[in-house]
Nucleic acid binder design. Structure first.
Length: 1129
RNA sequence: AGUCUCGUAGCUCAGUUGGUUAGAGCGCUACACUGAUAAUGUAGAGGUCGGCAGUUCAAAUCUGCCCGAGACUACCA
């Protein structure tokens, strides 16, 4: 035997392959080679969305990174240089929160018990805490990304590039002359728990809007009786009040106005106050009456009501007043805790607004300007003063501070958190704990100002990191005027290839159409400082776009202000805050204390990762825009947006040409994975159990990556067994015999394609069809389709047809051309499949490739060491023979039908049969089946094929209507025609076939039917055992002769003897001698087929004896058992 | 509340421009096959294609409404 070239294995164990290949990649520096061997001018640009390394990697990261890795590897194979610069997202709230938790401090402590300096260095040391874990999962999952030279967002160079972009925006003007970077005062979502405002896209992150149950109250606002309001009053003593609903009772002390709809009709209801029974007249929208008053109470006496009664007595005043008539009426302040002379004069007034509806509530909106964007605008428009406490500059501050607590001036409510979620859990869990909303509602009830208090379920936005509700709160902020660029963004977006498309047109496209300005400001400490300096009164400002500029400005300031400031070594707070610049008129300028939104950091990575424009101009040009990016669909309004926005506004270009947004990874039941539910999948365990490739393959092949994936271990098992197991077995089979035969793959000694057997040419044709399919699927960013095509090929074509039918060619006899062809064909299939699988399954593919390479001729062996260094196989239409593929389909079909007849007739496959009969309707069929004749005969163990044609007169034909062609012509007569056609006799069909047409009549209409309009099949051959499917019929000759029976027994004997060899652990090449107990049937078989038996089983001697003592009893068929002894010689 | 995506066998998914009897894999049952076997073949059970209308000769496919899931949007008082 020749020296074994190909490694053989007992069992497939993917995690071992991972280990082996990882070590090889490391030793050979394969990743680096795969990049450097390609031309920098021929690049495929990929951007890595930076993960935050202060959290541990999860299984969903494996999903997202598999998508990234797959297309990068694929394009590497295609010959592109695919650099993948890694990156780390290091700024932002999550880092701050973690530091605060670990140090046991809150935002209030910063600058007091801990300096900003200390705080920030704690952040800096935390941000890469889990970097090792991330590097580890990156390595283990086979994600190739350059982690040695990553971009890091806290780096001074990175920050400088961001400043440059901000300066660009600052200088850019809209047609109206407005800057793209501006400061404004607005009511914004604010997270007291995080101590910062939130941008609109932070509020649009998944899970922000949560259904919560709040306490809602309908308050009764007492109308001041005066000349203007007199039309509402029946008499001087009437108590007229306006009903207004709120789900945020904590804003009621800040109420300054009631907003009504000018065109909405309001009515007055005479009734009683539900909690006290005092008579009262209530104003509310006519449409809302039925929501609060049960008709059963109409006209009932008010005097007999007690608060225990369920039904309120009432009567409706017939006068209808419009909102416009109510406009300008004054009312008594509902909760007179804080007020002012201005307010007493101008506030507590009814105003009108177009946002009022009568869909819920009372048609009257309680208005508190500091806590609602609409409220704010409405108050400004109507000159309603703000309510609050003036600060040292005389600016009115809201009654709720930045921690979410009532200010000290709030009397009994001072110091209370307005949302119960802001209290620490131990406080909330106390028995006597009452949320502030409830306390306020109860106070109103006490004072007979509450009409109704009830729980109300609604969606309310929550902070994406602290998971606590946000407040709408007045804040000064810097904005990017994104709304000015929204048309251009939409336009450029249409040139981007989105996978799936609807994310681009729908979710992203619609979002762009309604784009709001980007709130850039963050009131935090650890992040990129806003590079804007202002004079104290704010009328002069400078935006710094580079360190050189900052240095110049510092020098100037030093000169004018007599200082000796240096350029800070670290651009973060607090150092940058200490820099004082000078205005042209000699006044000191200090930095605006805001940081910028971290999403700006990540959206700047195309430029900042290269420190553009200060360095690497060329590198940047080569790498912008990206050909491809991929992240989770949750990044649509995150990274996908910020990349697009910055590229559009600063460069008037797209930032990426193709984008794949993958779905969520859910647990097996379809629930979101979360630590609290305990259903989180640990990617390290998954990969070490099933192997990285099975994990990756499962995630890509199970469903399109943009669908949500219900992660199920059963699926991993299936992938491992089905795809990798089958491929492994196929390789192992090849290796076993290739080693025995000393087969060496050589490009020189290839059997010409035309000399190869039908089966070989067929699988090669299938292989090249596969190459075409897989390449186009990958090119279209359809990984699932590509992988499924591979699965189908390996399982159905390669393993279960080619190998099964070709098996004997590998083990029989000496090397000859037929055998060589079989080896070369199988080798080529394995090699190509390995390559096409490599983007998705990098470990196994490389392992397989390397095992195969061991058997390549030395002279030919200038092949790359790793499959990831090879060039992707080219499509070759010349190697595809569709006619041959069709032929084989017939063969497979015929075999399947023949086997099903055997099964039905209980004729085991080892029992040879004389012939099958195939009814034939066209001569091409005979030619095609004949091409695969030998395969069919051996597969179903039949001696010959007989074709039955028309001429034999045996065919019974059946016609069916071809709905597709006839339907259009016949319209509603289709059904009747189909019935008529189904009854066509043999003669009618034959006459149609000879004449080419026949006419039928339906409802007096004549229709010409051509042979195209019919599907003709043969169903039955009288007197034969038949099976048919899809128009193909097979009949089996089930007559048995002595000869056939004997051959069947001979085959059974071979099988039983082979089993014995296996059971006794003989080597495949061991010679044996066989002794069988003599019986009539067996003797017949041995007499006719003895040499065949010996040949098959490598037996030098075959003896029949009368009695056999130490043999094994085997069952040959239901009626026949025999004693057999198998011995090694 | 609105927008988008989705709903096909117990599970995971295919299903081309509407066209004859809706498929595959896993799982289940039975029987085979196996000198590559964590495989494979044959057969069977398992479907009102979420529901109801409509368009059409013909609907899993097109339209409308409803139900359910998910994502997104929203100042919702």
């Amino acid at each position: 035997m020749a020296q074994p070239r190909y490694r053989e294995f007992k069992q497939l164990h993917l995690p071992d392959i991972d280990q082996e290949i990882l070590a090889v990649w490391q030793a050979e520096d394969t990743f680096k080679q795969s990049i450097e061997q390609r031309d920098p001018e021929h690049s495929y640009v990929f951007y890595e969305g930076p993960p935050s390394a202060n959290g541990k990697p999860g299984i969903h990261h494996v999903m997202a990174r598999t998508v990234k890795d797959l297309f990068c590897r694929y394009n590497t194979l295609k010959g592109y240089r695919v650099e993948r610069k890694g990156g780390w997202d290091t700024h932002g709230l999550p880092v701050e929160l973690q530091v605060e938790k670990e140090l046991g401090i809150t935002k209030e402590d910063i600058g007091k018990s801990i300096s900003v300096d200390e705080y920030n260095s704690a952040c800096r040391s935390t941000v890469l805490r889990y970097k090792d874990l991330w590097d580890d999962i990156t390595r283990k999952m086979g994600y190739w990304v350059d982690l040695d030279n990553p971009y890091i967002t806290f780096d001074n160079n990175y920050i400088e590039s961001c400043w440059h972009l901000l300066r660009t925006l600052y200088d850019k003007r809209t047609n109206a002359g407005d800057s793209y970077l501006y400061k404004g005062f607005t009511i914004q979502p604010f997270s007291p728990a995080a101590g910062t405002g939130l941008s609109s896209h932070e509020l649009n992150l998944p899970g922000c809007y949560q259904e919560v149950t709040d306490i809602s109250v309908i308050a009764m606002f007492k109308v001041k009786q005066n000349e203007a309001s007199s039309f509402l009053f029946d008499n001087d003593r009437e108590d007229v009040r306006i009903l207004a609903w709120t789900t945020t009772p904590w804003t009621l002390p800040s109420n300054v106005a009631l907003t009504v709809g000018a065109k909405i009709n309001y009515i007055k209801v005479r009734t009683v106050s539900p909690y006290t029974g005092n008579p009262v007249s209530l104003l509310l929208a006519q449409d809302r009456l039925s929501a609060y008053f049960d008709p059963a109470g109409e006209g009932q006496s008010l005097d007999t009501y007690t608060p225990a009664d369920k039904i309120l007595p009432y009567s409706v005043d017939q006068t209808i007043v419009t909102g416009a008539q109510l406009d300008g009426l004054f009312y008594h302040q509902l909760m007179p805790i804080v007020t002012s002379p201005d307010l007493e004069r101008q506030g507590f007034r009814v105003i009108t607004g177009d946002f009022v509806t009568t869909e819920d509530g009372t048609g009257v909106v309680h208005t508190a300007p500091y806590f609602g964007a609409d409220d704010f605008r409405a108050c400004v428009a109507n000159d309603i003063p703000f309510i609050g406490i003036p600060d040292e500059h005389g600016v009115i501050q809201p009654l709720v501070d930045r921690q979410g607590k009532f200010v000290p001036e709030m009397g009994a409510f001072a110091g209370m958190y307005v949302k119960q979620e802001y209290y620490p859990d131990d406080v909330r869990n106390q028995k006597e704990f009452r949320p502030t909303d409830l306390l306020i509602s109860l106070a109103l009830k006490e004072e007979d100002k509450a009409f109704k208090i009830e729980k109300y379920k609604h969606n309310y936005p929550h902070c994406w990191r602290t998971d606590k509700p946000v407040l709408y709160y007045p804040l000064d902020s810097w904005f990017i005027r994104a709304s000015a660029a929204k048309e251009r963004m939409a336009e450029l977006n249409r040139t981007i290839n989105w996978k799936p498309a609807h994310t681009g047109t729908g979710r992203f496209g619609v979002w762009l159409e309604n784009l709001q300005d980007w709130n850039l400001s963050r009131t935090r400490y650890w992040g990129i400082p806003l590079p804007i300096w202002r004079t104290k009164d704010g009328d002069l400002e400078k935006c710094i776009g580079s360190l050189a500029e900052l240095q110049t400005e510092i020098d100037m300031a030093n000169k004018v202000l007599k200082k000796d400031q240096l350029l800070p070594k670290d651009l973060h707070r607090p150092y940058i805050d200490e820099v004082v610049l000078v205005s042209h008129d000699g006044r000191p300028m200090t930095r605006e204390l805001d940081l910028i939104d971290v999403w700006f950091d990540s959206g700047s990575m195309p430029y900042a990762q290269w420190h553009y424009p200060f360095e690497n101009e060329n590198k940047f040009q080569q790498n912008f825009p990206a050909d491809f990016i991929a992240e989770g669909v949750d990044q649509t309004r995150g990274w996908f947006y910020t990349l697009h926005a910055i590229a559009t506004m600063c460069f008037d270009q797209v930032a990426y040409k193709n984008v794949v947004s993958n779905g969520l990874v859910l647990d097996r039941e379809g629930n979101k994975m979360s630590k609290s539910k305990g259903n989180v999948v640990d990617p390290f365990i998954t990969i070490s159990t099933y192997g990285a490739d099975a994990t990756r393959w499962y995630m890509m092949a199970n469903a399109d990556p943009w669908e949500n994936l219900k992660f199920d271990e059963g699926g991993l098992l299936e992938v491992r067994n089905k795809y990798f197991g089958t491929l492994f077995n196929t390789y192992n089979f090849f290796a076993l015999y290739a080693n025995l035969d000393g087969f060496v793959m050589s490009d020189k000694d290839q059997v010409p394609l035309t000399d190869r057997p039908e089966l070989d040419r067929w699988i090669l044709s299938k292989l090249y069809s596969l190459v075409h399919d897989v390449r186009s699927h990958y090119d279209e960013y359809e990984p699932t389709k590509a992988l499924r095509a591979l699965e189908n090929f390996v399982d159905r074509n390669l393993s279960n047809w080619f190998v099964r039918l070709a098996r004997r060619r590998f083990w029989r006899g000496e090397m000859n051309e037929d055998k060589l062809s079989a080896y070369q064909t199988l080798f080529e299939c394995l090699e190509v499949v390995a390559q096409l699988s490599a983007p998705a399954a990098p470990f196994f593919s490389d392992w397989l490739y390397r095992n195969l390479m061991a058997g390549r001729e030395q002279a030919d062996n200038n092949m790359p060491k790793s499959i990831h260094l090879t060039d992707l196989i080219q499509e070759d239409a010349n190697r595809i023979d569709l006619d041959l593929e069709t032929r084989m389909e017939y063969a497979q079909h015929i075999c399947s039908l023949a086997l099903s007849i055997r099964k039905r007739e209980k004729l085991r496959v080892r029992l040879p049969l004389q012939k099958i009969l195939l009814p034939v309707l066209d001569s091409a069929f005979i030619r095609q089946v004949d091409g695969a004749k030998d395969l069919i005969l051996s597969e179903i163990n039949v001696k010959e094929i007989e074709y039955i044609t028309d001429a034999d007169g045996l065919l019974i034909k059946q016609a069916k209507a071809n709905f597709k062609t006839l339907g259009k012509r016949l319209g509603k007569n289709m059904k009747a025609a189909a019935e008529q056609i189904a009854t066509f006799s043999n003669d009618q069909i034959n006459s149609l076939e000879s004449k080419g047409r026949v006419s039928i009549s339906i409802d007096g209409e004549q229709y010409d039917i051509t042979s195209e309009d019919l599907v003709i099949t043969t169903e039955d051959l009288p007197g034969w055992k038949t099976a048919s499917e899809e128009g193909l019929t097979v009949a089996l000759d089930v007559n048995l002769t002595e000869e056939l029976l004997a051959e069947g027994i001979a085959r059974d004997l071979v099988n039983r003897i082979q089993n014995q060899r296996k059971e006794q652990n003989f080597e495949v090449t061991d010679r044996i001698q066989i002794t069988i107990q003599d019986q009539r049937d067996i003797r017949a078989a041995v007499e006719s087929f003895g040499s065949h038996i010996q040949q098959e089983t490598l037996a030098d001697k075959l003896t029949l004896v009368v009695s056999l003592s130490n043999g094994v009893e085997v069952e040959l068929s239901d009626e026949l058992t025999a004693q057999i002894r198998v011995e090694r010689i």
